[in-house]
Write a protein that binds this DNA or RNA. Sequence first.
DNA 1: ACCAATTTGTCCGTATGTATG
DNA 2: TCATACATACGGACAAATTGG
Lengths: 257, 257
Amino acid sequence: MHGADDRFERIQVAPAYQQVAEAIEREILAGHLTPGERLGTEADLVRQFGVNRSTVREGIRLLEQSGLIRRDQSRRLFVSLPRYNRLATRMSRALVLHQVTFRELWEASMSLETATVEAAAERASPEDIAELEDNIAKMETAPDSQAIAELDNDFHAMIARISRNRVLQLAREPAGLLFTPTLKIILDEVAVAGRRNLEAHRKIVDACRRHDIETARLWMQRHITDWRRGFEKAGQQLDDPVERTYVQHMGLGGAYR
Amino acid sequence: MHGADDRFERIQVAPAYQQVAEAIEREILAGHLTPGERLGTEADLVRQFGVNRSTVREGIRLLEQSGLIRRDQSRRLFVSLPRYNRLATRMSRALVLHQVTFRELWEASMSLETATVEAAAERASPEDIAELEDNIAKMETAPDSQAIAELDNDFHAMIARISRNRVLQLAREPAGLLFTPTLKIILDEVAVAGRRNLEAHRKIVDACRRHDIETARLWMQRHITDWRRGFEKAGQQLDDPVERTYVQHMGLGGAYR
DNA sequence: ACCAATTTGTCCGTATGTATG
DNA sequence: TCATACATACGGACAAATTGG
């Protein structure tokens, strides 16, 4: 015990490895280090920061994981733009760990995908349409439900890219990733699902070609509603949390590379 | 040069520290390690993996940054749920580094905030309404534009929480974070902005209380449109990329702690 | 195509500060 | 209060991979 009230807050000293990471991150965010630029060698950083190499390496791991720095094939460090699919993967995993339900997923996707397709319908170029048609052609001849589910995911990612809105693109990706495994199940269980899926994709591409925003949105809504119907027909419960098995299935690829 | 085409891909051997991180992450995602559970000590992990302490520590840093494990006040390791605001902060920074424009931000927010408020209007409880009104009361007596901007951010985050949809909640957060600094500028430059902002918040809360989804959406649309008008009146360009200064201003707090 | 220098990945041992019982 | 356990940090070392002459 002490006689008087505490006058001072305790001084927080961040560990050295965190300070290393923060210092480098500040330089990147301030624009003094730009993506593509080489960071020094570990020995350089040891000299500049005046700490041990192990400490520098621990700091580097933090930044490496966050995607702000990477190593090229020669393992040298360079500044990098965090990649969307990495961020999206992390978010998907977080959503699973938080046990979000399929209903939440569906509700959010209904908004995100319709907003995305509206922007895409407005801005789609002939080249964009050609890519979408190529995706549809591949889906028509896809060998199995797994391939179809992956092509469906690609389709929606393309729409997002065509929207020319990277905020929407990033926002829809996590939910999109979690849909793919369920679509495979639906395709296996519900006979008409594949046909309806393809029809919706065709109508969406048609609408995008004509820059018909209303129709594009309408068919996207139907498309997302179809998913829900198929999900329930396949015997799944909308209020169940997204299962861990889905994210395991996604694997760890790209998470640390 | 070699005489024949390469027949084999080069064998990739992931560094030991990555393998450590992946192994622990797999256990977490598989549910064998659950949030709150203690991880062993570093010495334990050294024994189990058969690698050096330094190697284990580097692996731990990767997971620590991703939010899957944390340390308590005694610095012991335990499994943790990745926190939304950490993920959102990372995404905001990525958006800034990718130089997204305010137009992208605005367009995405128009969809995300309206979808969120619709769900919130449907599900708001009396307690939720009380919280929102408390936020409005604080905003009425806020001392400066900085405080108002932060309260505005809180308001939208509350709406997202009330929506009971964590996918939407996570999706809207990154864009929301980037709005706050601009709102301060708008409040400083445009006289009517503060009044219109408050009015919109009041109408939104009223609509939520009555579970009037249509009106809630309408006023959210006006609210977001107002931001755009104010932004342009304040002399800002909608097609400019979000500036680094905004994210610097956000600081690094929470990124590593 | 070979060689020397550089750099990373990994390991070992040790010292120090702090939290816990 | 004291002892123990543990994380942080340091210094030094060596092998493998990569670079650049």
